[in-house]
Amino acid sequence: MTNQIQTDNRPKPGKYLTFMLGAEHYSLPILKVREIMRLCPITPVPRMPVYIQGVINLRGKIVPVLDLRARFRLPAFADQERVCIIVVQLESSDGGTNLMGMIVDMVEEVSQYAEAEIEPTPDFGSLVDTRYITGMTKTKGTVKTLLDLDKLLTMDGDIDLQQVYREVA
């Protein structure tokens, strides 16, 4: 990662929604969050990467749902008690907005981060894909990872989606 990109994507201070995956805390800008809903039946879409769980009916809209655990290659979570779908709104390349659901273990809280609390992404070396991490914060004794939603949900990340599509088509 170059410094250039990090300064460009520097997270802005403001309100963030925090949620958990296993023992890890993550945050995303609250303005991107459209709603939080209980886990509901998901219609799988065949031949998709494992982290694409399928689609749900959100009051008449078809919304794709992504399993964030699978996305980060974490082991599957057994206890479904507090599992939620966070529906986020993304700017699409054609100027419109897209909704997308993310399955997370549990939603924590909304917290306010000051600029000073946000630190740049440390260098994990090749261990962690930092392309969709905009920074980290340490508040109330817990470290939270700030996610770049647009990159996380639209970028192919570690899998070439187009390639996958071609293979299964």
Binding site: M48, I52, V55, I62, S92, N98, L99, Y165, A169
Partner: peptide, 19 residues
Amino acid sequence: IKSLGSAFKGQASMSGAAI
């Protein structure tokens, strides 16, 4: 018919979805 949206733009076996 509802569009599957841009997330599934690349796949070719589905033309849409319905509720």
